[in-house]
Design a protein around this nucleic acid. Structure first.
Lengths: 340, 340
DNA sequence: CATATTCACGAAAACGGTTTCGTGTTGATA
DNA sequence: TATCAACACGAAACCGTTTTCGTGAATATG
């Protein structure tokens, strides 16, 4: 087992000082050609690589960024992560991921652990519990300490920092408008509780599109489900039985796919009898039967932008406190579940 | 912007030495009650938290583990990652993720970067290019340096280290056996090229099950596709047109879902005319139409075990070089695409 | 009263680098 | 020959901890 070699080893072996070795390896003008060549050759031979931790301690830069997301087994978050990772890598940064599991406490703990020197900044999307509690002190403290933070997708107005999100409201608005243009009259909305910022925004878009056409909001056409990622229970089945729905906007893929299956079982033909549009243009939308028209959120792009914003803040010297909010426009991916 | 406080600050403020502060905060017996209380109160007031980097440098332990996977936008890998992250967190470890993107070079580079002090050990799944090149020197060097490594899922016999994988061959074997028991005669296999260890093992299970029933392998019943995650081109369509296939085993979900759609378009009824079984029991299997019978790989469990193995190796003092290979048994999740 | 213990704390080294500043040697210049 | 700059290198501080060892003062012991 050959141990990692350090400057000290090289210095001792070559009978020079540590500083000389350090300078020689950085090709400093201070050191003579001969000495440099000797040291560099030796270093290459023994495959010397500087210790990242020591360098981090010295320049107070870790070249790590912390990413805190509610869930990793989730197509949208992984696409964002891919964007982050790609961009970060090109800039020489590594990514430490923590999963908050939609829990406020975990979010806080993860943040505290990483904030003590492990990372140079954070990219995060709020856990649902955090949004429910509406408590953002951990984020504010971070900013107080001068640690850069970029929020994406699930953001809040309560803290001032860089943000990147998609225009959820507009996405929903355009989706509903499309359904209206297709002649649909009874457009349903399947959403989650409103404390989730994205769900609220999407609902707002739905309302606006209807209002513009002077269509009264029908509470019976709106279904609110408790959990984001599951469709346990038969609320949805009851919902589709009771109504003469001819189109549905769902705030995520799972609701839409599940809704389509129920509709099909109940004898509806998609898209002839009932049209479906979902959010989160993920793998399910592309492979479902029929394929699902879906509002694409451009996760990878979002990740790239978030990483770019963060690294810019990290590497900037002066701390002018100016924050940007980047809003991406969603794209409606038309597939078989709507008439196009 | 309040700066992070250090031992030095506390020492200066309270007019004691740094060592005294350090000891007091660790509740050392060496320090008097009075002094300890004073220091601890001060530290709490100013929210002192030790600097992780300094501690890492001191004890040569980062409490970070590096995870290198071929892709993050991939259900199986994310479930494994979740298992790793969960277990690691309970043990006080953080996880740095790098994506190799199926590229050998990226795998090597990511490894080298992290190996210089950033992590205490690695968990990884080989990139396809690495398996194709069959070059594992980067792994061997790692082990040479005494850095623990755990390989999962896509492993190799060429390097000695801890491994955790599922019995792919047996999963395929049992899947095919089930199809045979259902009376199927023309069972097709849709796989990738054989250099991917998992695809090869699954093919082997397919062969074995057929051989046991003295069924001759029919090359026309085997389709090999170039890419893991895409189904571009119409090879599959041609494949299903030309054959009198009555059952299909696919080495992943995407192939299976795509195959089912084509079969349906061609007028087959699933599962009456043709049965489908896929691998990777992911989100598609649960939500496809019909739902897909699938070989579950227990990714989360796999991740937990990998993390447990790694952390054990990290924290063990003596370096007895004894390696384990843990083999998980897959589970066949029966759904609508087969007759159960 | 002299010596041995205990107590409470500080000095300093160490982890592995970077960087500033000082210094002895060389050759050029006056 | 005395002076000076350039050259090539080393000493030491520093980043923020931990930990060993030493030490002065207070107390206990003979």
């Amino acid at each position: 087992m050959k141990q990692k070699i350090t400057l000290k080893h090289i210095a001792r072996e070559l009978e020079v000082s540590i500083s000389t070795v350090s300078k020689a390896l950085k090709n400093s003008e201070e050191i003579s050609r001969d000495t440099k060549e000797k040291i560099q050759a030796f270093a290459k031979l023994y495959n010397y690589k500087p210790n990242n931790i020591a360098i981090s301690l010295k320049n107070k830069r870790t070249k790590n960024i912390g990413v805190i997301i509610p869930d990793i087994v989730h197509h949208f978050f992984t696409t964002v992560f891919r964007g982050i990772e790609k961009f970060a890598n090109t800039k020489g940064y590594n990514v430490i991921v923590c999963v908050s599991d939609e829990s406020f406490d975990k979010e806080v703990i993860n943040m505290e652990i990483l904030a003590n020197g492990s990372v140079d900044g954070f990219i995060m999307s709020l856990s649902s519990e955090t949004q429910l509690k509406n408590d953002y002190n951990h984020l504010k403290e971070l900013i107080e300490q001068g640690i850069p933070l970029v929020l994406f997708d699930r953001v809040t107005d309560a803290v001032e920092c860089d943000k990147v999100l998609i225009n959820d409201k507009d996405g929903a608005y355009r989706a509903v408008k499309k359904l209206l243009e297709n002649g649909r009259k009874k457009i349903a909305l399947v959403a989650t509780e409103d404390y989730l910022s994205v769900s609220k925004n999407r609902s707002d878009g739905y309302f606006q599109a209807l209002k513009e056409q002077n269509i009264k909001i029908d509470k019976n056409l709106i279904l609110r489900l408790p959990s984001m990622n599951s469709v346990e229970g038969n609320e949805m089945e009851e919902f589709f039985k009771n109504e003469k729905i001819d189109a549905v906007l769902c705030v995520n893929e799972i609701y839409a796919i599940h809704g389509m299956r129920i509709a099909q079982r109940l004898g509806y033909k998609i898209p002839e009898d009932i049209e479906f549009i979902g959010f989160t243009d993920g793998i399910l939308s592309k492979f479902s039967n029929p394929t699902l028209t879906s509002v694409a959120q451009h996760g990878e792009k979002m990740g790239e932008i978030a990483a770019e914003m963060l690294i810019e803040k990290i590497e900037i010297e002066n701390d002018v406190e100016t924050y940007r909010t980047e809003v991406l426009e969603p794209t409606i991916m038309e597939r078989e579940s709507t008439i196009n």
